[in-house]
Amino acid sequence: MTLETIKSEIEAKIPGCVLEIVPNPSPSGQHSLRIDPAHAVAIATFLRDADELQFDYCSNVTGIDWPGKEISEKVKVKKVVDGVEQEVEEVRKSTTIGYLEVVYHLFSMEKKLGPVILRMRTEDRAERVHLPSLTPVWQSAEFQEREIFDLYGVIFDGHPDLRRILMWDGFKDHPMRKDYVEPDDYEYEPTAHDEVLERTRQHRTVMGAL
C-alpha cells in the first residue's frame, strides 16, 4: 500500500481533486501527499471509510510556517545605455508569498498501516488563511486544530469550537510564527547578563551590585 496507489485510488474516487506527492529527502522515507483544500473533507472521509484503507486514527496535526523568501533573479531587459539600446542583465529582487502549512499524520488502527501524511497549504500568511477543518472526520483533530489556530493563525472553517487553547483568551498575535516579536515586558531579572541585561537596563535602573 504505497503512497502512489493511495493517490490513484483517491483520484479515481473523487474527481477534480488536485494531489501532489511531496517527496521527503531524509532517510525516514515518509513522503507526504499534498491535497487541495476544496476537496479535503471528501478525501479525508474516503480515507477513513474505504474498506481497504480504513485510516481511522488521525495521530498528529501540526502547523508549519513558511515565511516568504527573498529571491533574486537575473532578468534581461532592454535599456538605453549611452544612447544605444542594449540588452542588459538586471537583478530583480522579489519576495515570495509565504504560506502556512498544516500536516496530518494518519494511521490505521484496524489494518495496522503506517503513516499517511497529508499536507494543506494556505494561500498566504496574512488574510487568506482559511482551511477546512477535518474535525468532523476525526475528532482527534479538534484540540490540535485549535492549537494551530492559536499558535499560527490558520482559521479552520467548520471547526465546532475554534478558540485559543494554550494562550489566554485576550492574547494577540500568534507565537509560533517565525516573525513573532516577543512583547517588551521585561521585569528586573536579578542575575541577568548579555542581552537580557541590556533590556532590563533599558527599563529600570539596576539595583544593587551585579
Binding site: N24, P25, S26, P27, S28, N60, I64, V103, H105, P115
Partner: peptide, 23 residues
C-alpha cells in the same frame, strides 16, 4: 542532519508520544 522530515513515535506509559521534526 540533512534536510527532510520524520515522525517518530513510541508507546510511552500514557499513550503514543510522537515527535515530528522538520530539518
Amino acid at each position: 542532519p540533512k534536510p527532510g522530515e520524520a515522525y517518530g513515535r513510541i508507546e510511552s506509559p500514557k499513550g503514543e508520544l510522537g515527535f515530528y521534526l522538520v530539518s
